[in-house]
């Protein structure tokens, strides 16, 4: 099937072959033009400080993946309160987001899942004073039916129980280490996942008998896992800081968004998503 097609195109008239040779060039130009056109839009130094270009403004918020639900709702609230404003989110691992900001990504607000990742940004003098707006506590997530009969944290130390933890390099993993240390337990997990959602997935699919994830993740799983609170979680509470970035293209909007996150209304949305007030 394929071979005859190749032969046919090889004997096509010369004009066409010259034309096709130019296609990659045109493509390269188009890509280049697109890249040039796209880059300045969010980064555009004028978009924030210049006289308002009649409405249409964009606020770019970089936020930890665990904030996806709550912040999407807050974004809609913000858009309703500021007609003509669009809130764009970049959700991801806090450490990755911090790296992106340090490397010059055009962001207005940064909400991190740990003070350590926020520190990466404040150390580079790229953000104002961060404020803690929420706290997140670990829970044991067990798959539907709780096949291994987990009741408390020390059940995870049983060698027959398959446990998924976050890797110590990411905030949920650091918290898990702290909680297990506080309980004086040694747990050998079968996997150290790269983020909390991946850890949750392993429990939701029943591949592990238990996982340590945040209370918010248990809530967000919509009943696929059951959460078991445990007292040692109090030793490993995660603070979520937020800050407007100093180079914010939409500086005034950034401060107003941070105010919304810290307000009573913002707190209500976060509480509903499973966060605790700071």
């Amino acid at each position: 099937m394929r071979a005859p097609r190749v032969i046919r195109s090889a004997v096509r008239p010369k004009r066409l072959s010259r034309w096709t040779a130019a296609v990659p060039l045109a493509l390269a130009l188009a890509v280049g033009a697109a890249a040039c056109g796209a880059a300045p839009t969010p980064a555009g130094p004028g978009s924030g400080s210049a006289p308002p270009a009649a409405g249409a403004r964009t606020l770019t918020v970089f936020a930890a993946a665990s904030l996806t639900g709550a912040f999407t709702e807050l974004g809609r609230t913000f858009e309703a309160a500021h007609p003509g404003t669009t809130v764009r989110f970049n959700f991801g691992s806090s450490a990755t987001l911090a790296q992106q900001i340090v490397q010059g990504a055009p962001a207005d607000v940064f909400a991190a899942a740990s003070p350590a990742t926020m520190k990466t940004v404040t150390d580079a003098s790229l953000a104002g004073e961060p404020a803690v707006f929420a706290r997140n506590k670990l829970q044991i997530a067990v798959p539907a039916g709780n096949p291994a009969g987990i009741d408390e944290l020390k059940d995870l130390a049983d060698a027959r129980v398959k446990v998924a933890l976050c890797a110590a390099q990411v905030p949920c993993g650091a918290a898990a280490v702290k909680a297990l240390d506080a309980a004086g337990l040694t747990v050998t997990p079968v996997t150290l996942e790269q983020d909390v959602k991946a850890t949750l997935t392993k429990a939701a699919l029943g591949e592990v008998d238990a996982a340590l994830v945040y209370a918010t993740d248990v809530l967000a799983s919509g009943g696929k896992v059951r959460g078991i609170a445990f007292p040692e979680a109090d030793e490993a509470i995660n603070d979520y800081p937020v800050a407007a970035l100093s180079g914010a293209p939409a500086g005034d909007l950034a401060r107003r968004f941070v105010d919304l996150v810290l307000s009573q209304r913002g707190g209500d949305v976060l509480t509903r998503a499973g966060f605790e007030a700071p």
Partner: peptide
């Protein structure tokens, strides 16, 4: 790999997984 086999040093942590996790703390 990380989704199906997980990430555990010595048994399932391959280089790309190690790179990804190193990126979190130590670029």
């Amino acid at each position: 790999t990380i989704t199906f086999a997980g990430n555990f040093p010595g048994s399932t942590q391959t280089m790309p997984l190690a790179v990804y996790l190193a990126l979190e703390t130590d670029p």
